[in-house]
Design a protein around this nucleic acid. Structure first.
Lengths: 215, 215
DNA sequence: GGACTTATACTCGCGTACGAGTATTCGTAG
DNA sequence: CTACGAATACTCGTACGCGAGTATAAGTCC
């Protein structure tokens, strides 16, 4: 398998896509990206900006096209995207759109170690999550409404998607909570008992060792 | 703000939760986690295992309790979870369950840079994604059915959640595709034009600079 | 019994992420 | 006109992630 993305950080993709519009210096890229709210759509850490730009240059995806200087401020290097950079950005975008990745969310991870807490506490935690989730959904919905007025649909899709996913998550949690509240959840007593004694019966331990289905 | 998780890698949480059951050596932890399929629920890279265990020890969340040796194999250090480790694991789990994080998925990132490709190509890419997604949903559903027979519900929640999220994603993509196919998507021509000329009209550029609502 | 594969049990080192820090300049309120 | 906070424009160091490599031991097929 060939080398995967020469610069793996998604911030690099964001940088490439703004650099396509016109040559920029790093700080300007950051301002533009910030202004467009791209840090809501991507896991961006601004501390990585200069490292990422340097790496993009090293791999020939960006190239320096001189410096400019405003007043007495430090001089800034302007970067332009190369052909390779354009190709990389397009290819990367294609991959992101076409390939559903297997990247478990933190919540999923949380669910998978939930057994370490008792059922009553879990219920409280999930209640809290649902509450926050519902608040966020409301806020997102309002924000989207506001933006719909002034932006073409094309630029709203990622927000629409994020909202849809949050709603789906809220619905799932709500459903689970309903079961927990109604005491319908099967194995509640075993769970409670396990948590009190803090060691799981041997048969369960064996069962939990579910063999992965050969695939 | 105090230091966040002393060992941030989620693999650390997985390690702590198995070490709670009984003292283990690192390789055994890996086997148990693998056997339980935890690497489907968490973003685990096995290459990080020894680093993570060492860091957990350094921060007093695990402690070495001697070594054992089987036959002529290299000696292995046994680690036991400390009280601090137990607390950290519980606290971390609580946080994961109760706090809906803002971590954009790669697909969301993809959507947010989608404008760089033309609408026709995007349609093809999304079709491909939907197809793969539907296949995965089918596979997940079957796997879940199989596991339901032999495992208590408690251990299936994370799979149920993953399935629900995938179904929601598939539904969203399907809906979007329907719009694209029907030509209902507003601004399609502008999009196509922009992609052909490869530079976006100035008014759009301004608009795209959506100010973040203060909050 | 020798040659092959598979499982066991790690080690190493490169590259990178990114928080925290720094130095300068601009706006502005008194 | 000067003091102060905010914005500008970066730099640096450390710790961390993780792929790739390694070496031995145990099955296993002929």
């Amino acid at each position: 398998m060939a080398k995967r993305r020469p610069v793996a950080n998604l911030l690099a993709l964001a940088v490439l896509t703004v650099a396509v519009e016109r040559p920029m210096h790093p700080y300007e890229m950051a301002s533009v990206l910030r202004a467009r709210g791209k840090d809501d759509d991507m896991p961006i850490k601004w501390g990585s900006l200069y490292t990422v730009v340097r790496n993009l240059e090293k791999h020939g995806l960006l190239e320096a096209v001189g410096t400019d200087r405003q007043g007495a401020r430090p001089e800034r290097t302007l970067y332009r995207v190369t052909d390779a950079g354009r190709r990389e950005a397009a290819d990367w975008t294609r991959e992101l759109l076409s390939t559903p990745g297997r990247e478990p969310s933190p919540f999923e991870s949380g669910l998978s170690v939930m057994g370490g807490l008792g059922p009553d506490e879990v219920r409280d935690l999930l209640r809290r999550r649902l509450e926050l989730l519902e608040r966020q959904v409301e806020a997102d919905r309002r924000a989207l409404e506001r933006e719909r007025a002034e932006l073409p649909r094309l630029f709203l899709l990622e927000s629409e998607y994020a909202l849809a996913m949050r709603e789906a998550q809220a619905a799932w949690v709500r459903e689970l909570l309903k079961e927990l509240d109604a005491g319908e959840f099967p194995g509640l007593d075993a769970w409670r008992a396990y948590h009190r004694t803090c060691d799981l019966p041997a048969d369960l331990a064996d069962l939990a060792e579910r063999g992965r289905p050969a695939q």
